[in-house]
Design a protein around this nucleic acid. Structure first.
Lengths: 266, 266
DNA sequence: CAACAGACTTGAACGCGTTCAAGATGATCG
DNA sequence: CGATCATCTTGAACGCGTTCAAGTCTGTTG
């Protein structure tokens, strides 16, 4: 259904790779003479080795306690080599980020397939995220800190996160279109909703990051409580009385939220 | 009016100061024998000197480019001495944070005194924040990054930020109670609104941090557009049709938002 | 006054992220 | 085969935040 939308975890390299000499002419560009670049995936193998090692150590020891030296040693390469593939330590996280987005979309689509009830689908989508992210809850705090930097490519609003974001938004579009609510809504609103639901997820994520209860039970409760409400609000939005407010809200979203999220080029 | 609520920038030290030997037995505690501690404010002077120097350099060069060595040198003390007063570089920011909250509350209260129109008061309060924070916009990105760490005392949700948060919430309570809307609302809702308006500010802050337009004009527009809407929504909440949704929303806020923000002990 | 104690101060040293000049590798060309 | 050139790899070195053992300073006590 929705999960095959973008090959989001393959194209991390434009951002994550730093050219050795000049700034950023990525090695993917073919040489002027049309010479083929080495056919062995040796380079990508090394890259993947480093990334996998890093992810493993991050989970084992946490982000800050995992040193670049440790990653390099454990992966059997030199520190400099790690920096050849990843311009900075934080770029190692992007792989994790993309991977999780993809897993989430797949898992959610599977789990919500059996129902057409909007609120239930939404709830499943959000719960699926919590489940997918659960193993990384501890480590996520530090990840979140990095992601909050507006100048970082890891920010959920950044251009570099566009593929992952697109995947997530597509999932929420699927949540809506697969529900009984979809045909009842006016086209314009239906068009805006997926991004809005993605924002709902962002709020849940925020809540989750700060949640210290076992199994983040509080966040789960928050989801169970907030999703029926979201359904009710959207449902009511069809009635006349709400027309002016809905129009305002649509304008606000269209003019101020979507551009920031990257629906239109900024 | 609202700005005298808490002496928020005085009590930063319990968190910012690290005892020299044992962990955190702050030097403020009097000795067992009842001996007085030195009466000269020498210590506080040094502390203030370091803080002021840091703030100046942060504004001049940005957070990351200002090194602890530079702060120490410029202040005429040793690096170790700076660490005697501030356990880490990020604690130097708390002073800035508290200061700004206080300035904002004072400025906003003054500027909104002439009107009782709710939306206008809210708009003034938010614009006042933008104006107050303007000099720090560039530096704020890095500040924000630190603040986003849930385990950091700089997080707007943390206990250490409670005084500053209380000041801000008090301001928004003032926004409401000074408006023509206040008497028309039911008590329970009126009780929840200040925190909700503070959340509105948090969203504006988020928007502002990512805003790269000159003079953050886009954020200002966002405020001008969103405040009338907030007013309208609150106004409408009185009518019967909305009763169920309002009740849901109140429950959600009471059960999930306020506890996180620290209205009740967690 | 000498001895003491606690608050304050110092700067060398540590560990980390990051950089970089230098080298190794291996495919392609004459 | 040797020369060439881009790709890939290395590890020493740099600058930074932070720590800490060793002071200095100042007011109090016997």
């Amino acid at each position: 259904m929705g999960e095959q939308t973008g090959m989001d975890q393959q194209d991390t390299e434009q951002a994550g790779t730093a050219g050795p000499t000049g700034p950023d002419q990525p090695q993917a560009a073919e040489l002027p003479g049309g010479r083929a670049r080495p056919k062995t995936g040796k380079s990508e193998q090394t890259r993947a080795l480093i990334l996998d090692t890093a992810m493993r150590l991050f989970q084992e020891r946490g982000y800050e306690k995992t040193t670049m030296r440790a990653i390099a040693t454990e992966a059997g390469v030199s520190v400099g080599n790690a920096y050849y593939y990843f311009a900075a330590k934080e770029f190692l996280i992007q792989g994790f980020y993309d991977q999780m987005t993809h897993d989430h979309a797949a898992d959610a689509a599977r789990r919500m397939a059996h129902t057409r009830d909007f609120a239930e689908r939404l709830q499943i989508a959000l719960e699926s995220w919590i489940d997918t992210a659960a193993p990384y809850h501890e480590f996520s705090a530090q990840f979140f800190r990095t992601a909050a930097d507006p100048s970082s490519s890891l920010s959920p609003f950044s251009n570099e996160s566009h593929p992952a974001r697109a995947t997530a938004v597509a999932l929420f579009r699927d949540v809506l279109t697969g529900s009984e609510l979809a045909p009842k809504l006016d086209a314009e609103l239906a068009d805006l909703l997926p991004e809005l639901l993605w924002l709902h997820l962002m709020i849940v994520v925020l809540y989750w990051v700060f949640d210290r209860t076992p199994d983040t039970e509080r966040t789960r409760e928050f989801v169970r409580r907030s999703t029926p409400m979201a359904g009710r609000v959207i449902n009511l939005s069809r009635y006349r009385v709400f027309r002016p407010i809905v129009r305002d809200a649509k304008g606000l979203i269209q003019d101020f939220i979507l551009p920031t999220i990257g629906r239109t080029a900024k």
